[in-house]
Amino acid sequence: MIGRILNSLAEPRVVPKIFAFAIAIVLVFSLPLPFHLNPEQVYPKPAPQLQMELAKKNIDISYNLAPYNRGGLPVDPDNRGIVKSQYKSPYEGWITAYLTPFSQWMRDVSYHLGTTIVAHPGGILDEILYYTRGLDTILESSILFTAFTIASWVILNRTRKMTGE
């Protein structure tokens, strides 16, 4: 009996099922736990849609960056953006307030283009992804690179040769 169980475990196709089962058990048994969010987080952000409403009411042009306005004045190291990071660094908040000329033009035109402006160089996410947590981005990109290498190597050297191309 035990031998049969062990033999069935030895088949590779059973392994993902065992993992799925284990994770499902842990997750389902943790359902009655009291999940709550600790309000003291690093990098907090304002309530959803608050900045958009302010942008519609206010004449203040910097709210046209909604929902990614994090304070500070553009191109001014003395007047930085508000970033609440884990370990303080002397250069934090520099990128948050930065706007390229093109994104300045976009900000002046409309208050519906905040996402495009922030995806352009500068902004809070570039600060987090390229400065305070830069290693994350390096790793993420390396994982993508590795997967592309594996896939293209298998395609070029194996699958194509087998189909006779």
Binding site: L139, A147, I150
Partner: peptide
């Protein structure tokens, strides 16, 4: 970062 490194280990193992 630890989680990402472990993922990278897994995918290179597969490679």
């Amino acid at each position: 970062n630890f989680a990402l490194f472990v993922s990278l280990t897994g995918i290179t193992n597969m490679g």
